[in-house]
Each structure stands twice: as structure tokens, then as C-alpha cells.
Amino acid sequence: MRLPNWLHKLASPPHFYRIAARIEPWMLWSGLAAIAVGAFGGLLLAPPDYQQGDAYRIIYFHVPAAYLAMQLYALMAIGSAIGLIWRIKLAYAIAAAAAPVGLAFTGLALATGMLWGKPMWGAYWSWGDARLTSVLVMFFLYLGYMLLHASLEERSTADRAAGILAVVGVVNLPIIKFSVEWWSSLHQGPTISRLAAPAITWDMLWPLLVMVAGAVLFSMAVTLTRARAEVLLRERGARWVQDAVAADA
């Protein structure tokens, strides 16, 4: 199987570097603007929930973080898979760039999830909650990817080894989620009073959507910046890098 031509062209490091540099500021500023609007809407304009009061407002941070934790893991795994199959080094660079960003959002999702858990469950953590537990596992998979990548001296080896781990992990994640769900469905301990998700109204929903969009744009901008730095580092011997750095200076 071959990649389409336009993708091959995009995958050439100098081309990617130039395109990424052009779209990056747009993503960054529109992302930050959307986050500001979403936060304003979510924290001030949206009405309080009739059951949870103002506590529910943490979803404006929790949901985007959890969503990005997954999306960035997918990006990391897909990038690694493309690198492994088609030997495109740019794909590895993007995977390696996405990992710390994903780890940060996963940490944010865990922290906000715990804060939300206190009013919901009466405890910061519930092992019976499949989502929380699988996000925790995902946190460790991100960590494993980054530590493995950092431990192997040779960059091409590190890319491939960590890439295999990312791919094995992405196959395993649904199984982990399913297992924890099954586990908690049979749990006979003290019953957890989980509130059924109430129907969300439009004035609660729109800030959430804006928040998610803003977080996606912001994380893409950060990932692109990191990917550009990775590319520069990896290609530092090449002529175009010296030209690009000279032009920036």
C-alpha cells in the first residue's frame, strides 16, 4: 500500500515546517479566544444545575481534557503506526511531540475528575468508575511511551520501539475500559450513587462545545510547535534547517 502523493509531499520535513509555521499562530490565538469565550460562558452565563448547583461547571474543563487525552493518544498511535508501516520520520516526530501534550491533558482530566468526584460520589476517587480508571491507565501508557523514548539513546530505535508500545496500547485501551466496566457492574460493595446524566440544555451546552473546540485548536498548536522543534532537532545537520534558523534569527 502506498501513501497518496500529497501526503508524501507534506511529509517532507521542510515543507511541513513551513506549513506548520504558517497555520500555528491562527490555531493558537483562535484556540485561546475560544477557551476564553467558553470559560466565560460556562462559568458565568450558563445556569446552575438543579441538582449539582455550581459544582457541575467543572465539566467545562473536565470534558475537553478527557476528550483531548483520548484524541492525542490516537494521534500518537496513528503517527507511530504510519512511521512503522511507511517509515515516515515526520510521523514519528509528530507522535513524539504529541505525547507530553497528551500526558498533560490526561493529568488535567484526572485532576478535574477527582475534584468532580467529591461532590458526586462523596470521594475523590472511585475505582469502580471505568472511565476514571482507564484514563489512569492511559496516563501510565503515555508515561511509558515517554520514558521508553527517553531511555533509548538512538533516536530511530526509540521512535520505533515507543511506536510499537503506542500501537499495542491503543489495542489494549478498549479492552481495559470494558474490563473495568464489567468489574464494576458486578461490584457488591457500598453502592455508589451516581447521578444519571441529566438532559443538558442549550445554554449549558454551547460553552462546552466552544471549550472543546478551543482546547482542540490550542493543543494542535502546541503539538505543532513541539513537532517543529522535533523536526529541527532531528534534521539539524540538513541545509534547510540552517537556512530556516538563520531566517528566524
Binding site: 539513546e153 538512538e154 533516536r155 530511530s156 539539524r236 545537520g237
Partner: peptide, 11 residues
């Protein structure tokens, strides 16, 4: 033919 080998930073 045309072998290029890199070892880390070194060609």
C-alpha cells in the same frame, strides 16, 4: 549501493 548510515548525531 549508495549506503548512508547514521548513528545518533553522527553520519
Amino acid at each position: 549501493r549508495g549506503l548512508t548510515i547514521w548513528r545518533g548525531e553522527r553520519r
